[in-house]
Design a protein around this nucleic acid. Structure first.
Lengths: 258, 258
DNA sequence: CACGAAATTGACTGACCAGTCAACTAGTGG
DNA sequence: CCACTAGTTGACTGGTCAGTCAATTTCGTG
């Protein structure tokens, strides 16, 4: 669904990607915005040669789903899955319960979607930046430690608490009770392990690190990473991260010799 | 409250400590056991010179409190604090709700008592045995890894699940929401850190380990330990413990040089 | 026996839980 | 106008929650 509006050129409009192909835009469409329309605006610079305005394509799809997701992500991260109810999530998202169940069949499905969202965010803001191939292998661990500290600090500044790792928190709370969530969190850890394993392999190939059990060392690093965040959360002290996480680079599991 | 009974000497009676001082024992007390009395027996070897029996002092205090404690310990360890209700704990303990609140003012107070119980058990079955002064320092970490595996296996054989560390589980779930529990779990971690720190100091003094930041290394080891248990729980795989935990001995945080 | 203390019971309180679903609203196209 | 689709509402269902507390039972002592 699409709607077109003209926006004065002086408006501060962000030039973002167009979610809808130009042929579907109808310049003659009505100009009154539908309910909630401006929540998901995307901008299309079309023909500007004889216009003084920018045409804006507005995706009328509501953003209720997204609001539910982000509300759930924040509440569950700050507390726990079981402690945060659907009613509270709806209240924070500004929707009613029926809307919630329109978008998510169950609380668990919402939480699996929250996990996907958290992973996407961690990928963009943490993993891709830390494990950038342009960085020397060992420096990636330092980068990981720095970025992790910064992200935890961000939440701390908002909430007054060290919140720990959203994946680790959910795994710890639910692994014994909810198999799909256990599997999803285990997959998340496995992905992080792969990234670390790739870095370790590069470092060994470059002669920067000695031979070792790569898979086990990568997994041990994931364990250490999660453990440090757990301790920082328990102490409610960001300095625990700063003090302990840089030593991630020294974690080693030697090859087993029979 | 105390009651005395004579027990035939051939009975297999454990020689344990006496909770009640001898002058309070009345040899003429009646010999019929009160309700639930045998649940909390303590043994007193008194005057045996002209007797063929052992006198047993039986504490008549009911064991309802203890049953509530152990029920809560098992349920909360297997699931989570928020997910286990008071009603369910009472059902498993075989008491009614009023009894629960007779012994514990609140669910949180129960959980603090559960933490104390878990710590006492960990001290007896894990920490005192692993950190036995008769063991060479580095062997203590190996012993810690072995015993931890055995204890987790014990729960796994009963429940079909790797349950993780009860302290770490509670910390992760509740640190941001319940200050007394956060503090209690932080204290538990600090105690483990002290034991480890003492072992590290001994190893450094014996020339078995190089200089390092002792406090940070001990804390890093606690983090690694907890992280490994979390991963094993997430994977629901005891072998994760076997593969990763022995490397605990290699964790190092060097002294910071300015 | 009587009495006081300890222990137990369980109905009750006010609140919250995940999920259901008929009714309604909004938008689009014919 | 109507039909259809997408989205929203919120009362309802059957259940659970932590905690309260008067009544009852049990225990120990004199």
């Amino acid at each position: 669904m699409c709607w077109i509006a003209t926006v004065d050129r002086s408006d501060d409009v962000d030039d973002t990607r167009l979610g809808i192909a130009p042929p579907q835009l109808d310049p003659a469409a009505r100009q009154t915005p539908p309910r909630n329309a401006f929540r998901s605006a995307t901008v299309a610079k079309l023909d500007l040669t004889d216009r003084s305005t920018i045409l804006v394509a507005v995706d009328t799809q509501t953003d209720s789903r997204q609001r539910i997701l982000t509300a759930a992500r924040d509440l569950i991260h700050a507390r726990s899955y079981t402690d945060v109810g659907v009613a509270e999530i709806c209240a924070q998202a500004g929707v009613r319960k029926g809307s919630f169940y329109h978008y998510f069949p169950s609380k668990r499905d919402l939480t699996l979607a929250v996990l996907d969202l958290s992973l996407a965010e961690a990928k963009e803001r943490l993993l891709d930046r830390a494990f950038d191939n342009r960085l020397p292998p060992l420096q990636r661990f330092d980068r990981l430690a720095e970025l992790s500290y910064e992200l935890q600090k961000e939440r701390y500044d908002l909430t007054g608490r060290v919140l720990g790792c959203p994946v680790g928190n959910l795994a710890t709370e639910l692994a014994t009770q909810d198999e799909p969530i256990r599997v999803a969190t285990a997959c998340a850890f496995a992905r992080m392990q792969e990234l670390i394993g790739g870095t370790l392999a590069a470092a060994v190939a470059a002669g920067e690190l000695p031979e070792m059990d790569l898979a086990a060392t990568a997994q041990a690093m994931v364990a250490y990473y999660e453990g440090v965040l757990m301790l920082a959360k328990t102490e409610n002290d960001l300095e625990v991260i700063r003090r302990l996480l840089p030593s991630l680079r020294h974690i080693r599991v030697p090859k087993t010799t029979i």
